[in-house]
Amino acid sequence: MKIGVCAKITPDADARIKVAADGQSIVLDGVKFGISDYDEYAIEEAIRTKEKHGGEIVSFTVGDASADKQLRSGALALGVDRSVLVTENPGDPLGIAKLLAAAIQKEGGFDVVFTGKSTIDQQNFQIGTMVAELLGWAHVTQVTALEFEGNQFKATRNMDAGIRQVVAGTLPAVISCEDGLNTVRYAKLPDIMKAKKKPLDSVGAGAIGGDAGAARSSVGNLAPPPARPAGRMIEGDAATAAKELVRLLRDEAKVL
């Protein structure tokens, strides 16, 4: 199988994110970057798919030229065969999706492309589905189990109200990966050394025939969420505190 995977470089999940003085961006100093958590599931699933069905894995990233570091340690060292880094900075999600779709099309011949369900920075839940639309492929999002047979796939996905659905379709498809799909592996030192020699192509939009177009939306006015009013501690033994809590929820907060 020819397997693609889309991965974004974002601040680490445990990074303390602060808003810059201009309120339009975040403070990047001292922030550690890595591959977005859900995209790690996508990379892991790509590797597991190759282990089972054979083939080749190519990863696609739209981001700064400096992303090569995280791609080597977080993708190539784990088992991705080649990485394509599109060094552009589109202003909106559709722009990113257009460049990814162009890069995937330029490379060609894919059976499946994995993405994370969303990225942990902007949390848009958009890219995978947009890429599927731009390529004219099927897609399944928030997938927690997956199998392939010939050119068919069967995916289990999360739905509202705890419902899960098993959906079947025909490849090629974009599969967006949810927590629970797999457990990610970590790179071993020899693999990190070997990854330094794996192909990583940094290309501009022109080289892949892509065009993000002018941004259709902009992000600004960043601020911490509004502060909550100070809370109240309820004293007393369990029975007394429980009764007082019920009274407060009913008469003061009016939520019962």
Binding site: I120, Q123, S217, S218, V219, G220, N221, L222, A223
Partner: peptide
């Protein structure tokens, strides 16, 4: 955004 530690405006043109 960022796990709810920040809020932002998206303006769509």
């Amino acid at each position: 955004i960022y796990a709810g530690s920040i809020e932002s405006d998206v303006t769509i043109s």
